[in-house]
Amino acid sequence: MIELSKVSKSFNSAVKAVDNIDLKVNNGEIFGFLGPNGAGKTTTIKMVTGILAPDNGSILIDGLDITKDPLKAKKQFGFVPDSPNMFLRLKGFEYLNFMSDIYDVPTKERKEKIEMLSNRFEMTKALGDQIQSYSHGMRQKIIIMGVLIHNPSVWIMDEPMTGLDPRAAFTLKEMMREHADKGNTVFFSTHVLDVAEKICDRVAVINKGKLLFCGKLGEMKAHFKVQGESLEKIFLDMTEHE
C-alpha cells in the first residue's frame, strides 16, 4: 500500500512541482498515474521512492515512512525508472546478481528467479552480454527483471511500457495483473491512455502539480462528462503541452 498525505515539492521555491497531493494506492490494485509531460508525475514518484525529499507531507509504503525509516521502506518496493540506461558496462547476469545482493536474495531463490524471468522476457541469450549491447527495449526488460528479482510487494514504475515490444509489454501487463491479484500493489505512471484503460483498476490524473482526479476509469469518464468534456478532449488538452 502507498499513502501520500499533503505532499508538496517545489524547485527554486517559485513554482510548485507537486502541490499538496493526497493519494492512496490500495493493496490488490493496479494504479495508473496519468498526466502530460512536466505535470509532476516523475517528481511524485521520485518522492515516493526516496530520491527526492518532499517539502511537506508524509509518504508511507506498507505503513513505513520513507523519510523517517528509509531503509526499511525502500526494501518494500521495486522501482523501474523512466530511463533504462544504467549499469551499461555490467553484463546482464552481473546486474541481476548485484540487485539480488542489494536486496538480500538467497542464492537458490535468485537462480530460480533469474531463470524464470529471463525465460518469460526472452532474455536467456542476452544475460552474458554487457547491457550496453542491448536495444532500448532489452535494457528496459533487464531493469524490470532486476526489480522483480527480490519479489517486492509494491511495484513502482515510471513509464514502464516505453520501448517494450508488443510481446514484452503484454508479458509485463500480465505480470502486473498477477502481482496485484495476489494482494500486492502496482503503481505506475503513463501518458498512454490506452494502457491505463486496459489494465488499471484505478487512476489519478495530475497536471501542473495538482491532482485533478482520483478514482475508477468509469468514474473518470462520468466525472469529466459532467463538466461537458469528452475523455479524449481532456487528454488532448493535457498532452498539448508536450
Partner: peptide, 18 residues
C-alpha cells in the same frame, strides 16, 4: 556487439552466489 550466447544452468549457478 554482443555474443548472444545462452548461459547454461550450471554457469548460472556458479555465477549467482549470494
Amino acid at each position: 556487439s554482443s555474443s548472444k550466447k545462452q548461459i547454461s544452468s550450471e554457469q548460472l549457478s556458479r555465477k549467482s552466489i549470494r
